[in-house]
Amino acid sequence: MSQANELYQQVILDHNRNPRNYHPMPDATYACQGYNPLCGDNITIFAKADATGQTLEDLSFQGNGCAICKASSSLMTSQLKGKPVSEARELFQEFHAMVKGDLDPETAPNHLGKLKLFQGVKEYSSRIKCATLAWHALMGALDRKETTSTE
């Protein structure tokens, strides 16, 4: 199970079982539903910006997805709370590059922190979209789209 431990680590399994920030947000400033047509998974991301519109005060999510998808949503919303919008966009780029195998978080400078847990995804090309669905939905939300798709 050594490989399994790389992808399905305890933290990921825990965030799947007890997802953080798993609730709707009636007063969200941004919301977008992300859909993965390959597997039918969908995740809606809610975000609230502060008065300046520059900082993400709060984030939450709801929807259906696999363990990778739910844990990714849970960890993403946790990590971005209180962060500037610009940092969220930057982190999306780093996360995307990491799961595609274009960025090695052990050697290249990055701000991924806990999100490094998902580096095992790069070995499973069919699962990359599971890990990035929440991120695509967040980017869609920030771009004022109501829905977005991984395809």
Binding site: A4, L7, Y8, C39, G65, C66, A67, C69, Y124, R127
Partner: peptide, 10 residues
Amino acid sequence: GVHPHDIGTL
């Protein structure tokens, strides 16, 4: 409690 894709990968 387990998504089919997780079953497939595992």
